[in-house]
């Protein structure tokens, strides 16, 4: 899928994640801020990256503000944001 416009999904509530997606020049890039960065930062990035790959997204900048979301929440929010950012 091709990102054509910025889009967002999610909230800043506890246990949710706020995802913003922008078109990017060179591949996929993630900027993550999380209240559990030390404990789960790598796992959250992996879930975001896996979701991008599943949706065949190639050039996206994902800005994520995590408030302790579980994996399925992260996946759902990323997917929704991507779909909003595409045609």
């Amino acid at each position: 899928m091709k990102i054509v416009r910025p889009a967002k999904a999610g909230t800043m509530e506890s246990n949710d994640i706020y995802i913003m997606v922008y078109p990017n020049e060179n591949g996929n890039e993630i900027q993550l801020d999380s209240i559990v960065l030390k404990q789960f930062g790598n796992q959250i990035k992996k879930v975001i990256m896996d979701t991008l790959n599943e949706l065949e997204v190639e050039n996206a900048l994902v800005v994520a503000k995590d408030r302790g979301a579980l994996d399925y929440t992260i996946k759902a929010r990323v997917e929704t944001a991507i779909k909003r950012a595409c045609e």
Binding site: V36, K38, Q39, N42, Q43, L70
Partner: peptide, 9 residues
């Protein structure tokens, strides 16, 4: 099972 195993600090 819900959260995954956190990385050690």
């Amino acid at each position: 099972k819900l959260t995954g195993v956190p990385e050690k600090i």
